[in-house]
Amino acid sequence: MSAPAPLPRPAGALTRRTVLTALGVAPVLLAVGCSADEPAGADAVTPAQVDQLAGQVAVQEELVAAYEVALVSAPEVAALADQARAQLTRLRAAAPSASGSPPSGAPSPGASSGPSSGPSPAPAAVAGDAVAARATLRTQVATAATSHATACVGFSGARAALLGSIAAGLRGQDGQLT
């Protein structure tokens, strides 16, 4: 009888050069021994997708701003805020423009190729009320997650994976804000 198969574990390394480049961790490339000659393939982006990526960066920036507002009255969300910032860093690294604001001429929010349903600005009125702050933040986290998940399916390759992963991470945060 053959030995039992080990249970799958989460992926622990990168191999795709495009992913490494996009996420700013190129030194890992040699460590995992992958080819440096791989074509862009699924990670190529169209001009419209560049705009959309910039839009998703803007969505995440709004979420990070919302966390900053919520932290005033709900400091216990600090760890979640750190994760939102980490997500923003990775999104910026993956976005060719990396500015966070839609480039000139980009469709406005709500347009078909713009950011999809990003969080609305955090109302300043929530400061001082932890319960209200968490409730407002939860709505914004859920909205951002939906936005990233919706955008994700319009991409391929590493950017689809990153947007989908961030959406999943925000779904996980959502439940912690009840």
């Binding site: 989460p10 992926a11 622990g12 390394a13 990168l14 961790v25 890992v28 760890a79 979640l80 994760q83 939102a84 980490a86 997500q87 990775r90 994976a161 990153l162 989908g164 992963s165 961030i166 999943a168 991470g169 996980g172 945060q173 912690q176």
Partner: peptide, 11 residues
């Protein structure tokens, strides 16, 4: 801890 992850499924 932490119970959440910023980018689950990615390194």
């Amino acid at each position: 801890s932490p119970v959440t992850a910023a980018t689950p499924g990615l390194p």
